Amino acid sequence: MIKEKAKKKWDLTRKMLDITDDEYNGVTQEDANLRFVKMKLQIAVYYMQLLDEHDSEYQVPWNKEQFKWALRKPVGDKKKQRAKEWCHQCRLIRDKACTSWSYEEATA
Rank of each mutant, 00 (worst) to 15 (best):
D31T: 11
Q42L: 15
L50D: 01
E23H: 07
I43D: 08
R14F: 06
R35S: 05
L50N: 03
E105M: 14
R82G: 01
W10Q: 04
K73G: 02
L51T: 04
K64S: 15
E85Q: 13
Y103V: 15
M48C: 09
D55C: 07
A97E: 10
W10L: 06
R14L: 07
L12R: 11
M1Q: 01
E53D: 06
L34C: 06
D77N: 09
C90W: 00
Y24V: 01
L12I: 09
I19L: 04
K15Q: 14
A83I: 05
D18H: 08
E53S: 04
E53L: 00
Q66G: 11
G76N: 06
V60W: 07
N33Y: 10
P61L: 09
R82S: 06
V75A: 01
K40I: 00
D21R: 11
A83E: 00
L17W: 02
V27D: 13
G26W: 07
D18W: 05
I2D: 12
W86N: 05
K38Y: 02
Q42E: 12
E30R: 11
E104W: 02
D95Q: 11
R72W: 05
L50K: 07
C90A: 15
Q29N: 14
Y47S: 12
Q29P: 13
D21W: 04
T107L: 14
L71G: 03
S100G: 15
I19C: 05
M16H: 08
A106T: 09
A44G: 08
K9Q: 05
E57K: 15
D21K: 12
P74L: 08
K38T: 05
T107S: 15
M16F: 10
M48Y: 04
A106V: 08
E4V: 06
L17I: 04
L71I: 09
V45A: 08
A106H: 03
T13N: 02
D21E: 13
H54I: 00
A83S: 13
L92I: 11
S56T: 03
W86K: 03
S100C: 07
L12N: 09
E30Y: 07
L50Y: 01
